[in-house]
């Protein structure tokens, strides 16, 4: 982040906003909205992994869909390799899609059961325009090898593979266009622990080999810590804390981050652990509130939190947090 700050970031997201309109409850009432993203800003540099963590309903998957230009964005900008993608038409996006690919959560739902592996993996190549059959076959062959599958697997169908292998197929499909950016939305959540480790190691190896950049979305903090260089913690459509993984996990500057970290059960640590417990669950996606988004559940909330929205401001080098009390949070440790 510091050494390459002069180069163009692979992904630059600026003040991204996405609100979903709810159906009208009556003819005369104004329709409500789900405030899924309320101004998200971050950038990812080449060859880095950027983790996004948060609970369900915090807008992390909406963010992935908007970065991938899979749905219209309300306002803000998404630049991939310096090129704006917000507002482009589908046809204009098509040739650009080879630069950013996605891996989905569910390895069962994201592969077409009627197509064989060769066809599934080769599909993104269609966006590249005319390509010879020999070229296509050699690329499928190479990419299957690099994700640890056999080249003979091209004629098999998804149901012949286990969950971990299917996720390898999904990764091969994302990789075949040699993208700069791969957006992975909970890619290992559906897998068993022993298989999850294989896929995580594979993602690491592929990064070393091809220098791809990951935007990695997960609810599992331990997985993010393992894989990512930088992390952003989201709450109700906003980034509440962002920084290098080591800094953020060691000295969380936002109470939500601290509570999330404490809530993760740790094997072999005994039954009693001192920690702050969080009451209630994520609420209020349908209202825009005054003050801090986390005020209802925050154990430290004061009057100022209900009146003034804390800006995302630096607490240390490359470490930002949106909390009025982040100084006292970092001092305590």
């Amino acid at each position: 982040m510091t050494t390459e700050s002069n180069s163009v970031p692979v992904l630059e997201v600026h003040d991204l906003v996405r609100h979903y309109r709810l159906p009208r409850e009556s003819l005369f009432a104004e329709p409500g909205h789900v405030f899924a993203l309320n101004g998200v800003t971050f950038e990812i540099h080449k060859g880095k992994s950027f983790g996004i963590v948060g609970e369900s309903g915090c807008g992390k998957s909406t963010l992935a869909r908007n970065v991938m230009a899979l749905e219209p964005t309300d306002s803000g900008s998404v630049k991939i390799l310096g090129k704006e993608v917000v507002g482009l038409s589908f046809d204009q996006l098509r040739p650009l899609r080879q630069h950013f690919q996605m891996v989905f959560q569910d390895p069962y739902g994201s592969l077409d059961p009627h197509h064989n592996v060769g066809r599934i993996v080769a599909e993104p190549l269609a966006a590249l325009g005319a390509i010879s059959k020999a070229e296509r076959e050699s690329r499928v062959h190479d990419v299957l090898l690099s994700v640890g599958l056999k080249p003979q697997d091209v004629s098999k169908y998804p149901h012949e593979f286990s969950g971990g292998q299917r996720q390898r197929i999904a990764i091969a499909r994302a990789l075949i266009t040699h993208p700069e950016l791969i957006v992975a939305d909970e890619p290992v959540s559906a897998l068993d622990v022993s298989v999850q480790a294989q896929v995580l190691n594979l993602l690491k190896d592929l990064q070393d080999e091809f220098g791809v950049t990951y935007m990695f979305i997960s609810h599992d903090l331990a997985v993010v810590e393992y894989l990512c260089d930088e992390v952003a913690v989201m709450y109700l459509g906003e980034i509440v804390e962002k920084g290098r993984t080591e800094d953020l996990f060691e000295t969380p500057a936002h109470p939500y981050t601290r509570i999330l970290l404490d809530a993760v059960p740790k094997p072999g640590s005994g039954q009693k652990r001192e920690r702050i417990k969080l009451k209630g669950n994520v609420t209020g996606q349908t209202e825009q509130r005054v003050g801090c988004a986390f005020q209802d559940r925050c154990p430290m909330a004061q009057d100022v939190c209900r009146e003034i929205k804390p800006p995302l401001s630096p607490v240390a080098k490359d470490h930002l947090a949106a909390c009025h009390f982040s100084d006292s949070m970092t001092e305590k440790r």
Partner: peptide, 12 residues
């Protein structure tokens, strides 16, 4: 199984 689990607080 234990070793395959990513654990919080382990150096990257």
């Amino acid at each position: 199984l234990f070793a395959a689990m990513p654990k919080l607080g382990r150096a990257r």
